[in-house]
Nucleic acid binder design. Sequence first.
DNA 1: CCTGGGGCAGCCG
DNA 2: ACGGCTGCCCCAG
Length: 105
Amino acid sequence: MKIQNLTKFQKRVLGLVRQIPKGKVTTYKMIAKVLRRPKAQRAVGNALNKNPKPIKIPCHRVVRSNGQIGSYKLGQRKKIKLLEREEIIIKNKRVQELDKYLFRW
DNA sequence: CCTGGGGCAGCCG
DNA sequence: ACGGCTGCCCCAG
């Protein structure tokens, strides 16, 4: 079975996301910034879309910078459920008090 | 609330 | 290799 053909960029994105603990979240934009590619948020999203291990690598903890949930490979429903299961308050498809849950590298 | 345009790694022909 | 698209985005108006 074939391991990963992931690009360097993708690996770095996933590597960061893997560090986000339960109950915390981050944004596409922040990841882009940490990777020193401040305008590549969309590319970050694309990289997450290729996440090979949705469980091990919690890309559901990555939301939009305005608190909106954003999309998810397995469906937005699922993403919301997973987040709520981690005690994150979501109302009208938007994380309440985003800054309170933000994870900092 | 909605709209348009910017920006960028990957993918595909 | 090359150019055009696409998409888990963002922000100004």
